[in-house]
Amino acid sequence: MVVLLFALAVTGGLYAALAPADSARADGPAQSLAIEEGRKLYAVGCASCHGTGAQGTSDGPSLVGTGPAAVDFQVATGRMPLQQHGAQAPRKKAVYSRAQIDQLAAYVASLGAGPAVPAPGQYSPEGADVAKGGELFRLNCSQCHNFTGKGGALSDGKFAPNLHGVDPRHIYEAMQTGPQNMPSFPDTVLSPKNKKDIVAYLGTVNSSTSENPGGFGLGGFGPVSEGLFAWIFGLGALIAVAVWVAARTAKAKRS
């Protein structure tokens, strides 16, 4: 009995000390105001699918315990609110402002603990090992996202999107929360350092500042686009040259 009480006390104490900070801090007056505003926004924009208490309906999953990182990812990348049902929600223009997204995130966070929005230091490329990130990407991500995150098809019209131009914060959140058809990679699977490396790798190989040493990259899709290019522009150009050479012949009647 003493042991059990001790164990309970230790567990409770550890939980108090280590529980996700934002859910523990969700009691301040500013925070409760944000939750209230978020609840109103939720009721207007989200409740029709996710249910009035975010408990989920046949049209959308429960949001209890998904955490603010998931809200930030889904709403800030424009995937939510959903435009129409389909294989997968595509990225589009965000309809909520930054402040509104934070309020929605605060409301969903108040329903149950989940991954927190990462701090800028967690996803900035400073101090990251790009090569390690590349290795991790090829091990964990490229099955769906292609070698350098150019995107790839999944079954039945689902897809892993191109990661070009995706905010590092959203890449980090996607790994934390596993949106759409993506599996989640919690910190127990990919440590925060691993995630930082992967984000840095994508910034190096698949962003507007990436270098392309070999010239025009043909979309980065490899042999299919290379084959098309070889047929159309390679052989096409050579046939055009052949036609030109054959037409310019020394004909007896011309001389």
Binding site: R138, Q143, N146, F147, G222, W231
Partner: peptide
């Protein structure tokens, strides 16, 4: 390791 979009030459 294996990647999406792995195809042979045409």
């Amino acid at each position: 390791h294996v990647s999406n979009g792995s195809q042979p030459d045409w």
